[in-house]
Design a protein around this nucleic acid. Structure first.
Lengths: 340, 340
DNA sequence: TTGAAAGCGATACCAA
DNA sequence: TTGGTATCGCTTTCAA
């Protein structure tokens, strides 16, 4: 076995010894400097610096039963929508003295369950999770944890706690109606992986088609992989390969839409003259594509910001928050890739 | 003050009591199930399930002095290059039983220092950080921490431990030479914020211009904000506003490049006929832009992967790793936005 | 303002 | 295979 402690780590006691005070005084000087006399504080700060002391967070958490950290579960980091969301969370939590622990569930309910366990094990003071579908155990663990739980991005018929999101089914239906209103009958739907938000938007699409008495058969095309521009091009290519091209396609997100658009142009179809393309989320490049991309704007930043604010409020008041749904909505943005 | 413990949290002891075994046996059953008899294991698992027990990581860390977690510091989450890098880290560390704690330093040395302190306080078993410029205290804390430190993305003249990156100065010089070789004399340089990688690339640009006896005065344009497509358009717009347009511009990254390209087109300049544009990083959309964007490919995934592998090796062998530089290089990718 | 003693909830080490 | 006991490094009482 390795020799114990190859140069033991510096502890509070080491600092106390060097500063010739008791450990508890050092602890105080670090947490509430104003509660310690000037002289001592200076001696202690000096000792801390000299030794390069870094408090052991595990010990602190154990003793205080406070972690000063927030757990956040996102399905991926590849998509910039989650970066925007996380940015908002950081902007609220860091100044409030909380650390943000981000865990990536990679769109897997199983990994999400592990993430929940890991975060609750860290005794995070709130859990903020993207999506509303969880494994039964994950749901139960969240429910019986004593911390606020906030589900985001999607609204839930049965939220665990606070729920801040938008109605993806309605957004999908509205967007599809919008294309139908342009006079299109063959409206396609392109998607990558079938996460629950995608599935809801697809359901909205089917609903809208059905409402307009239009068949959706053979118009839904999916390659269940992480959404990307490349994937959009591939899906569009498969779509075009199997028969009569659609008059319009609604893509599960802007990445797919951009790829689909480029693929159409590659094979000589003009957008929007020969085919219309509608994306989702309104990523930054959508406005800069040529033609610029029509899409559905969603406010990721606001969802993050409100989630963080709600969480801070609940933590401060030592409550969990009764189930409540906050719908932040969406907005269809018409640009050049669809008719005016 | 709030009443203490509104329904106390479940501990190992609660599980032990319910399963009628000693706490230490529960601990064993959870960590090394094979070291406990079948009957007990089942009873214990049942009790864990029934109570929804989640071990307190703080207590475990304190007692075992192992955190099973890795600290990663990135300057932003907005840029997909870091998502790719983090993805690689996750893919290596999670299966190896390590949690990845991601902290965002928001391009601030000060926040980075806080991040270092927070991570070392968590007793992470390795620190992986983007960049090689740190505050003196951050550097010292990393140095005297007893864990492996891996600096990435950029090569360092004086690495703390292992250093995996590329030479941004040379990449900047090579890219600029490439434009000069096309016969351009007025080659501009566009950048947003002056992080150290950007500064190195700028230095490379200046070097290349000076090598070719070309003046760089008035050809460097910067708006020190987070890089984005919009920002690229704005910087290009300012550039065009102040006088004779350049023959080519080298942009600090593909976002800026795409924005710059769209701005040129907006004002009626053709790319590459009237102006050439070169980006950096080869983000996915670069190949799909129209015209497709020439750029410099960097391998973020590989940097993450190798950093993780090296870290795991060092952790396993209980070593810190002597300073060593691994240069992963880059590659200039010529597409339609520059002459062939 | 400072300090002494008693935990926090797990694991390590040694016994049975 | 199972259990007792000390201990990890800090904070929370409570006293001085």
């Amino acid at each position: 076995m390795a020799r114990k402690a190859p140069a033991r780590r510096i502890t509070l006691e080491d600092v106390a010894r060097l500063a010739k005070v008791s450990p508890i005084t050092v602890s105080r000087a670090l947490r509430t400097p104003e509660s310690v006399s000037d002289g001592l504080r200076k001696r202690i700060d000096g000792a801390v610096m000299k030794l390069g002391y870094v408090p052991n967070a595990a010990a602190s958490r154990l003793a205080s039963n406070r972690s000063h950290s927030i757990g956040v579960i996102v399905p991926t980091l590849y998509n910039v929508i989650f970066a925007e969301y996380l940015q908002a969370l950081h902007e609220i939590f860091l100044p409030a003295g909380f650390q943000v622990i981000v865990v990536n569930s990679r769109y897997s309910t199983e990994e999400e369950e592990n993430a929940v366990r890991a975060l609750l094990g860290q005794r995070v003071e709130a859990v903020i999770v993207v999506g509303v579908d969880h494994s039964p155990l994950a749901r139960r663990l969240l429910q019986q944890s004593h911390v606020p739980v906030i589900e985001t991005f999607q609204i839930s018929p049965d939220p665990i706690g606070i729920n801040i999101g938008l109605d993806h089914r309605r957004a999908g239906a509205d967007a599809t109606h919008c294309l139908i209103a342009c006079g299109f009958r063959r409206v396609g739907f392109l998607l990558g992986q079938h996460d629950m938000r995608a599935v809801e938007r697809l359901a909205g699409y089917r609903e809208a088609m059905s409402d307009a008495d239009l068949p959706a058969d053979g118009l839904v095309m999916s390659i269940p992989q992480t959404s990307s521009i490349t994937l959009g091009a591939r899906i569009m290519s498969s779509f075009l390969a199997i028969g009569k091209p659609p008059e319009a396609v609604f893509c599960i997100d802007d990445n797919l839409a951009l790829g689909a658009m480029q693929e159409c142009r590659r094979v000589g179809m003009r957008v929007p003259d020969d085919i219309s393309i509608l994306g989702f989320h309104d990523l930054e490049f959508a406005a800069y594509a040529s033609p610029s991309l029509s899409t559905v704007y969603t406010n990721r930043y606001e969802m993050g910001k409100r989630a963080a604010e709600v969480a801070l409020g609940l933590i401060a008041s030592n409550k969990r928050g009764n189930p409540d749904v906050i719908n932040v909505g969406y907005r269809i943005v018409t640009r050049e890739s669809t008719p005016a």
